[in-house]
Design a protein around this nucleic acid. Structure first.
Lengths: 231, 231
DNA sequence: ATTACTAATCATCGAGTAG
DNA sequence: TCTACTCGATGATTAGTAA
């Protein structure tokens, strides 16, 4: 009989011991660079045999969670982007457990979008809901913040929170998906973060406000902007 | 053949899937209160069957990591002090991975010790090392800070860091154990945190400084004090 | 010294089912 | 319904060993 793990597939939900292995690699610095680790020594750190450590490395490789350099005698291992993402998800869980606050600060770098934000903001189906649920009608356009580093985990917390739901709708023959918003403040100005429900992995935060934030604060691409959100 | 896990014993180092189970309980609020969870529903959240979820609950119970109230139909579960400690250790690992800074702020409440601090500070074997390695000779007495909440994890990071080693020695027929110190600042004043190597679990931080900090800043028991440490 | 294969062992899992 | 038992199947770990 197949296990639920296999059946469900659970994208990104690795087995606990894989996460644990990944974590130990990260603790040795494997999140940033290749770190040299023999399977024996690594096994000791993990509390398993040399053979198991070797096997786990192979499994992580197959899952694409790490890269390996086996040119020299001692293998050198580095956590891949996918692996780092898995660790950040895990970290986000612990943040939710221990840093339970109703507010959260997150920092991102301003960046130009492709104008899709403005397109969506123009839709009546969204505008009405924003007015009703946020108490303001947003400026037509969004401020995109690119989040990186440890703050990515905070973004993942957001994905796990309920927020204020924005219903999807149909208009002009196409479907507009649901989303959730979180009230926030940017330099004291009321605004909101909007997250699509069908959440493709992204490291970009879309901020809406009734004011044209870029102009008001003279924000140019690359500027670091701090956002204070309500959960 | 016994597994390394069993042989080593690894106090507090639980199997990864136990930690994972504990984490899911915490995410449901089980860190603070009893939370009601059927084994079926919990199994779904974990990605395992009802039977496995039930079994895991039993295992956590046997390990003393959770408490359970089985009076009603649906069991109610709460994470024990031991379980919470395990989770905090895990959280501390992720903090070390993602919050890699060379400085760290930690907040504790001032509390009275039993005067042992002063006794140790009087020992020449320690005093000489402090003068040499910290650049100051400490005031005879320590400021004890009781750490709680999320900051406990930061304390665990300290335990994992190397710091500046202080060697143990013998004097007057008894043994004085080794320790490690971290340079720090308390309201701008240079000081240091001292951690015994043979580290009994504790939530108290001992701060030494060349000045009498309590008097200088008029610190009374219960005051919250913020400390900035170098790692 | 490495890494990793194979075979045997053991832990974990889910199905069936009892209480 | 619920929790939790037994047990056969599956998965993970180890020792031995090859390369």
């Amino acid at each position: 009989m197949k296990r639920l793990w296999d059946v469900v597939g659970m994208p990104g939900a690795l087995k606990p011991y894989h996460i644990d292995t990944l974590k130990h690699i990260a603790l040795r610095g494997g999140a940033k660079d290749f770190v040299s680790m023999s399977s024996r020594e690594f096994g000791e750190a993990l509390g398993v045999s040399q053979q198991s450590a070797s096997q786990r490395i192979l499994e992580l490789l197959n899952e694409g969670l790490i890269q390996r350099d086996l040119a020299t005698r001692r293998q050198r291992v580095k956590i891949s982007a996918k692996g780092l993402e898995a660790l950040q998800r895990e970290y986000a869980d612990y943040l939710r457990i221990f840093e339970t606050r109703d507010r959260m600060a997150i920092t991102g770098k301003a960046m130009s979008g492709l104008g899709e934000g403005a397109f969506y903001m123009k839709q009546k189906g969204y505008k009405d809901q924003f007015r009703r649920k946020l108490g303001f009608e947003p400026y037509e356009g969004t401020l995109n913040l690119k989040v990186s580093g440890a703050d990515l985990s905070k973004l993942m917390i957001l994905h796990g929170e309920r927020g204020t739901p924005i219903d999807g709708f149909e208009a002009g023959g196409r479907t507009f998906g649901g989303a959730k918003v979180f009230k926030a403040r940017l330099k004291g100005v009321d605004c909101a973060v909007i997250l699509p429900i069908r959440t493709h992995h992204t490291d970009v935060l879309e901020v809406i406000s009734k004011e044209f934030l870029r102009a008001k604060f003279n924000i140019v691409d690359g500027d670091a902007v701090e956002l204070h959100m309500d959960l």
